[in-house]
Design a protein around this nucleic acid. Structure first.
Length: 926
DNA sequence: CTGGGGTCCT
DNA sequence: AGGACCC
């Protein structure tokens, strides 16, 4: 949430004058900031404040008041309007025209603009908010799941335009669109006008000049930034428009030549608008910022220190002797913040990756018994494990953080933490699905950490607990996809990828290296700029190229569509067009009973096949976003069944250098690994979100709440008259997962947090819309997945044995008959979730084995591998008519879409994804 | 400070 | 492990 909001704007008392307007501008620009890195700021400052001049002139110059980047970049800052509130309004459109607040504990952390008209503000106490707006509808926002999902969806959406997207919190993104601007300029695809607002310090003089030459040309920097930023504003407008069309989200944008300025200027025109700042206006613009505290990078601690030095306003900081400042702060920080005060910021846009920690936190008035602690720990763990499963990585460290009630002494807010490594064998439970055991063991670890923090023999009083999983590593033991790919994954800072620098074929084993973030002193510090890159496509890692080029003109052209499977025809084709080589890959299953052998053999073969393909067929890999629909029981499947949510497969893309055909023939786990690597390479974090019916539930009606909402602390915090809740006002809507009061102790108790709403018809979550002309196809031509051309045998598999705790299913071949199947297809159908971690179910289920697989060999495979293959081969089980009927009504959806209430997602992605466990379960019920 | 997250640096 | 910063 943007802090700068209103105060900032209101603050625009230009008390301090427009210095020398007349002469400042022209000379300003001539001296200014040059693209060669002249001492951009010095002129403005001394012009302004001659009396202080002596203090800075040399010192400031010495301190590198210089941008090596000048105005060469084009940076867009996207700031979602009242993000949480928008998410809630998406989830329940009925809330749109009501005053809406999102509540965490006793705070309204954000509210929609209807509520703001009543004077409700961010971070306002509930009481006061209600005083100001008695009709305020409050929804609980303590569970961030949905926000996180939408947040990542937005960031990924933005990455269609450029890979250079940096997240800042849930609702802000920076985009470095320098290369896009360049492309548009080169292609002539531009207009001459700035779209949206242009920050301008109004004064007579500029009016005069405008009269003369329309656009203030005299004052315009000649480095080309004016053109670039103008195009930048057009790009921003496109993006905002698309965001609105596709995700139904409104936002503000700031366009300028660095992050600081684009962020600050974005706040100038608040809801749903955009503002562009040109270099000529920087000095005046910065002057409107006022207090140093407003500068991102100067937090409360630093601003206090500064205040002690008499530095409160930006000007104070600008004029302060840098060497003095270096004495008081970290020298580096001193330089940086002084530069920031002039609007100089060379910090790069750092491509986001997957999160480095996954944590859950709760605050409370009091927690003072070990029992309470333990139950909190369990609660955290259950929800964290869901998230881990979605994430796909394995944590190596567990950290417990607490905040004790501080008895009115000094450091009240400080938290304490202890962390420890998580033994590998414990974490192996994650992939094997032994979640209950996992939870229990982690619980013990956490409790041990707790005893390191608190002497449980003494009374204690906690007001906050947090559990974090850190050091997330990719589960894959080996980077299989390095066999398939030409380039190694790359991430990170957007500066400097000289076309020649190739780190080809390197290993990419552990977690995504997100480019080490470079040595940043917080984000706002200059990070060795290297040398400005003009961001032509060649400057990007290979895997980015397609996107950055494709995307520049019609971003939709390579839309990543969560859960959308316009893909299936192509995939069917890929299968149909089977060629010898790829067939061999699958056939190797016959020969190798050892998994390892199988894999390595497949890798080799696939490699060969790929090479072959590549030489013949260069331009084939078009549609690389596919969805998975097999009903395999991968860890992720288990995740699905555990969480009751749809898996992450909905939005995965095949690396461009991997042939779809071959890809489809690979065992699932290898496929998955490839995709995961590709994901992390792209930094396309968090595949998870896609589905989960999460999206729309339970909030249909304000008056429903009593049915759906379990009690929670939120409600108990409620101001007096709660009996009257029924009647319209003062209703707290518990959206998604209220932190349940029920004991989470056994995994069976874990409920999918969002699946409780039968009533809301659109259980589909927001996925981006695929323009109708944007069929993704594979290279192999047309038509439906050709079911009839691929005979397949069906095997009924009976799970005869009880599943001991931890035992793998024992499969037994029962019968075989011929059948037909397709591999990738749209899936949909009933939601389901498994809340049984240790099922003892048995079931008959039909699976299909491809004809070329030797049944006998197959039956000798270890059962888990059998299962893996079965799942891979099997088409998604047909849904019963009933469950088909349970699908969201297409007409309803399309109506909603046409009314703009829903994004136009034709299908309910993943909805039919079912796990094996699920089969067992449903069979069992009979 | 308050929330429930995140980031990086020391 | 803690502190600073961000939202």
């Amino acid at each position: 949430m943007d802090e700068h909001g209103m105060e900032f704007e209101d603050n625009e008392d230009e008390s301090w004058s427009l210095p020398f307007n007349g002469d400042s501008s022209p000379s300003n620009t001539s001296i200014d900031i040059g693209c060669q890195g002249s001492a951009c700021m010095t002129d403005t400052q001394d012009r302004r404040n001659r009396k202080q001049q002596h203090r800075l002139s040399s010192n400031s110059a010495d301190s590198c008041m210089i941008s090596t980047l000048g105005h060469t970049r084009t940076i867009i800052h996207i700031d979602i309007d009242c993000f949480y509130a928008q998410v809630e309004m998406m989830r329940n459109p009925k809330l749109r025209d009501k005053p809406l607040g999102v509540q965490q504990k006793y705070l309204v952390v954000t509210c929609n603009y209807v509520a703001r008209e009543y004077g409700v503000t961010k971070l306002m106490g509930v009481k006061e908010a209600l005083d100001r707006c008695p009709n305020l509808v409050l929804v609980s926002g303590e569970d961030l799941t949905h926000y996180r999902q939408v947040s990542y969806k937005i960031s990924e959406f933005l990455q269609q335009y450029t890979p250079h997207v940096e997240r800042l919190g849930m609702d802000e993104n920076f985009l470095d669109v320098s290369h896009l601007a360049k492309q548009r300029l080169e292609s002539g695809d531009t207009r001459s006008d700035v779209i949206g607002h242009e920050y301008k310090f109004e004064n007579e003089d500029s009016i005069v000049r405008e009269d003369k030459c329309g656009k203030d040309r005299l004052a315009t920097c000649t480095c080309g930034c004016h053109e670039r930023l103008t195009v930048g504003s057009q790009i921003a407008a496109d993006i905002r428009d698309a965001l609105h069309q596709e995700i139904n989200i409104t936002c503000c944008a700031g366009i300028s030549y660095n992050k600081l300025l684009s962020k600050l200027v974005a706040g100038k025109h608040k809801p749903n608008q955009q503002t562009t700042l040109f270099p000529e206006q920087t000095a005046q613009f910065m002057a409107t910022v006022g207090q140093v505290r407003r500068i991102p990078g100067i937090g409360s601690t630093t601003s206090k220190k500064l205040a002690a030095l008499g530095i409160v306003l930006l000007q104070d900081l600008q004029q302060f002797d840098i060497s003095d400042l270096k004495q008081e702060l970290e020298p580096k920080q001193a330089v940086v913040i002084q530069q920031l005060s002039f609007g100089v910021d060379d910090s790069p846009v750092v491509t986001f990756g997957r999160p480095q920690t996954i944590s859950d936190e709760d605050s409370f008035k009091k927690c003072s018994t070990v029992k309470d602690v333990r139950s909190k720990v369990k609660e955290f763990l259950c929800s964290l494990i869901k998230r881990l499963l979605d994430d796909g990585r394995t944590p190596q460290t567990l950290r417990l953080t607490i905040r004790k009630l501080t008895t009115a002494d000094k450091k009240w807010t400080s938290r304490e933490s202890r962390q420890c490594p998580i033994p590998g064998h414990i974490m192996s439970c994650l992939s094997s699905g032994k979640l209950e055991r996992l939870t229990d063991q982690l619980e013990e670890i956490a409790m041990t950490l707790f005893t390191k923090l608190v002497d449980t023999k003494e009374p204690f009083h906690l007001t906050l607990m947090n559990i974090a999983f850190c050091s997330l590593v990719e589960k894959s033991k080996n980077a299989i996809s390095s066999f398939f790919t030409v380039r190694s994954p790359r991430h990170g800072v957007d500066h400097g990828h000289p076309p020649g620098d190739s780190h080809v074929g390197q290993k990419s084993v552990p977690t995504p290296d997100r480019g080490k973030q470079q040595n940043s002193l917080q984000k706002w510090v200059i990070k060795s700029p290297e040398k400005l890159i003009n961001n032509s496509p060649e400057d990007f890692p290979d895997n980015c190229e397609a996107r950055s080029t494709n995307v520049s003109r019609s971003p939709q052209g390579c839309l990543v569509v969560p859960g959308h499977s316009g893909m299936s025809p192509g995939i069917g084709d890929a299968r149909k067009n089977d060629n010898g080589e790829s067939r061999k890959i699958v056939e190797s299953v016959k020969k190798d009973s050892s998994e390892l052998k199988t894999l390595s053999c497949q890798k080799r073969k696939a490699e060969e096949a790929i090479e072959d393909k590549h030489s013949r067929n260069k331009k084939t890999s078009l549609g690389r976003n596919i969805r998975w629909s097999s009903s395999a029981r991968s860890p992720e499947e288990i995740a699905c069944s555990y969480t009751g949510r749809k898996c992450s497969e909905a939005r995965l893309s095949i690396p461009k250098d991997v042939d779809m055909e071959i890809f489809l023939q690979l065992p699932r786990d290898i496929q998955r690994e490839i995709l995961q690597e590709e994901e992390s390479r792209k930094g396309q974090m968090y595949s998870t979100q896609t589905e989960k019916s999460s999206g729309y539930e339970e909030l249909n009606s304000v008056n429903d709440t009593d049915n759906n909402c379990s009690t929670s602390h939120v409600r108990s915090d409620y101001p007096e008259g709660r009996g009257g809740q029924r009647k319209d006002s003062r209703t707290i809507l518990h959206t998604a997962s209220v932190k349940e009061s029920s004991s989470p102790s056994d995994c069976g108790g874990i409920e999918p947090t969002g699946d409780r709403s039968e009533d809301f018809p659109f259980k589909q979550s927001m996925s981006t819309r695929l323009p109708s002309d944007n069929k993704l196809h594979t290279h192999t031509g047309s038509g439906q997945p050709s079911m009839s051309e691929r005979p397949t045998k069906t095997v009924s598999v009976v799970n005869t044995t009880k599943k001991q705790s931890g035992d793998i299913l024992n499969l037994k071949l029962n019968s075989v008959d011929d059948n037909v199947t397709g591999v990738c297809e749209e899936t949909r159908g009933g939601d389901s979730h498994i809340d049984d971690c240790d099922s003892n179910h048995s079931a008959n289920q039909t699976y299909q084995i491809p004809p070329h697989v030797d049944k006998e060999v197959f039956s000798n495979l270890p059962s888990d591998i059998q299962m893996e293959y079965l799942c891979q081969w099997s088409r998604v089980p047909k849904m019963s008519p009933e469950s088909q009927g349970a699908l969201p009504d297409k007409k309803q959806i399309s109506t909603a879409v046409s009314q703009g209430r829903l994004p136009n997602t034709k299908h309910k992605p993943n909805a039919g994804k079912t796990s094996i466990l699920q089969f067992f379960q449903s069979k069992n019920k009979k």
